[in-house]
Design a protein around this nucleic acid. Structure first.
Length: 491
RNA sequence: CGGAGCGUAGCGCAGCCCGGUUAGCGCACCUGCUUUGGGAGCAGGGGGUCGCGAGUUCGAAUCUCGCCGCUCCGACCA
């Protein structure tokens, strides 16, 4: 176990927050539930943004920006949507402060009360659809495929760094289509992009499927999701893609003229992933020594730790490596030389393990004599000698191995912790002891779902696309299963 | 919002019961020397309205009351 970090086995929740602060990913903000994303953490977010954004552009989406402040009345236009968000909205009621007439500090100026209160967006469907009403007249205006990168605020009771904070960063796509088929296709296409980025870039295996009525987005016809398993075997919803049908078009009266000159409401989707993904990254790949970052998004893929006494030693080491490091840079490998003289080499080893750098290169006088270096993999801890002249060839290979190795480890872990059960007693036992994912039959009744949740704390995470409900029965009622589903305790 | 606990240096804590020197310890920080292949050693140093406010007292970190803030556990959520 690392110095100052709670053991993952002993207390997973503390281990998680310890890593975030020790690896300098984030820190607590001054307002309860807020979070500062520090440069190292923000670099990861930037890489994720780029990975998603590139794929959005490739599929015809464009970025735009809508305002943070929304008229309160907008939220109430879609009945389900109100129910979903009303309880957690920050409301702006005044626009001015004044010196406290009774003493020190500032107070709200009662004369500055707003005629119509505004809310801080918990999500942007309502503003965006108020604008789409202006922009859409004919089928020729469709589709609209807009995405925005923004912050949103949801006033949460209980918060946790990255997983649930009052303000968070995300991406929200909002599309408008002429036909239900097109909207459906869009929602599924985005889900594929999410799966691809999670698996190929973040090395996190995902399950894809449909949310139940109880779990779907407020205002959606149906919600697709990607669901992941964390290191404590609990489920984390990592992203959602909603087919909104005509719900928002009706709420905001957005119609278009069809080719046949008929007036019809527009079909919509919305979809998002957030900084929560960084939480997933930590909880899927982290180990007792700290973070383990997949090379694809590691701020530094290779960290060089020179072993020496002073500037002259370090200069000699940098000269020794110059050609190799330049070549790696030219190949797009992100290399960082940690040439701080104020901390020891041993300290740096621990620090970069905490920060999850995929490869560490140690170079000292002994290596220089031999024309070699020591290279250490963060994923396995494996330490080996490498010839300096082989670095350019070997480093990219090792990074690829680490990327796929982390993914394989996560796949294996999920497989080992996904079980099937024969009856409800076994189900309860499994959930309360080992946990993990349980794949079983469900009769499709919301009351069954609610009862199981009440009794076990496990919820239906999703109805997987590859479900085979034929011939199996509901784990709770014993009736023929309508769906095969995944149950788990979730974040 | 219900239950429990905690506020003393940047962080983690001791001191509080039983009031009485200049409020202490570890880590971190600064300076110097020696070190540097797995969290260096020694020496010196800086940093505190003891959460805030009132009260009791000759005297309050310590006792009393009020307030504020935070953390953890239960109902909602990406």
């Amino acid at each position: 176990m690392s110095k100052g970090v709670t053991s993952k086995k002993e207390d997973f929740a503390r281990w998680y927050t310890d890593i975030i602060t020790k690896a300098e990913l984030a820190d607590y903000g001054p307002v309860k539930g807020t979070m500062v994303i520090r440069p190292y953490g923000y670099s990861i977010w930037t890489s994720l943004k780029e990975a998603f954004d590139r794929r959005f552009q490739e599929t015809g989406h464009v970025n735009a920006y809508f305002p943070l402040l929304i008229p309160k009345s907008f939220l109430s236009k879609e009945a389900e949507h109100v129910k979903g968000f009303a309880k957690e909205c920050a409301v702006v009621t005044h626009h001015r402060l004044m010196a406290n007439p009774n003493g020190e500090g500032l107070v709200v100026d009662p004369d500055s009360k707003l005629e119509e209160e505004v809310i801080i967006r918990p999500t942007s469907e309502t503003v965006i659809w108020s604008m789409y009403k202006k922009w859409i007249q004919s089928y020729r205006d469709l589709p609209i495929l807009i995405n925005q990168w923004a912050n949103v605020v949801r006033w949460e009771m209980r918060t946790r760094l990255f997983l649930r904070t009052t303000e968070f960063l995300w991406q929200e796509g909002h599309t408008a289509h002429a036909t239900p088929e097109e909207a459906e296709e869009e929602a599924r296409k985005i889900l594929d992009i999410y799966r691809e980025v999670l698996e190929d870039v973040m090395a996190i295996p995902v399950l894809t499927g449909l949310k139940t009525e109880a779990e779907k987005f407020a205002g959606a016809v149906h919600t697709y999701c990607i669901e992941t398993m964390m290191g404590d075997k609990r489920a984390l919803q990592a992203g959602t893609s909603h087919n909104l049908g005509q719900n928002f078009a009706k709420a905001f009266d957005v119609t278009f003229q069809t080719e046949g000159n008929k007036l019809e409401h527009v079909y919509a989707t919305s979809w998002g992933v957030s900084t929560r993904l960084i939480g997933a990254l930590i909880m899927v790949h982290g180990d007792e020594k700290g973070l383990r970052l997949p090379p694809a998004i590691a701020p530094h893929q290779v960290v060089v730790v020179p072993i020496g006494k002073n500037d002259e030693d370090f200069s000699a080491i940098k000269d020794y490596l110059a050609t190799a490091l330049t070549a790696l840079n030219n190949d797009g490998i992100r290399v960082h030389v940690d040439d701080r003289l104020t901390v020891s080499a041993g300290f740096k080893f621990h620090e970069w393990e905490m920060k999850g750098a995929p490869l560490r290169l140690e170079v000292g006088a002994r290596d220089m004599e031999k024309g070699s270096a020591v290279i250490v993999r963060r994923d396995t801890g494996e330490k080996s000698f490498i010839q300096r002249d082989n670095l350019v060839q070997e480093v990219p290979k090792l990074l690829e191995e680490i990327q796929s190795g982390l993914f394989q480890q996560a796949v294996t872990f999920r497989k080992e912790n996904t079980t099937t059960v024969e009856n409800y007693d076994e189900f309860k036992k499994q959930i309360s002891t080992e946990g993990g994912f349980i794949r079983c039959g469900w009769d499709g009744d919301p009351e069954t779902e609610a009862a199981i949740r009440e009794e076990t704390k496990a919820s239906i995470r999703l109805i997987p696309f590859d479900e085979k409900p034929e011939g199996i029965s509901c784990i709770y009622s014993g009736k023929p299963a309508k769906h095969e589903v995944i149950f788990a305790k979730a974040y």
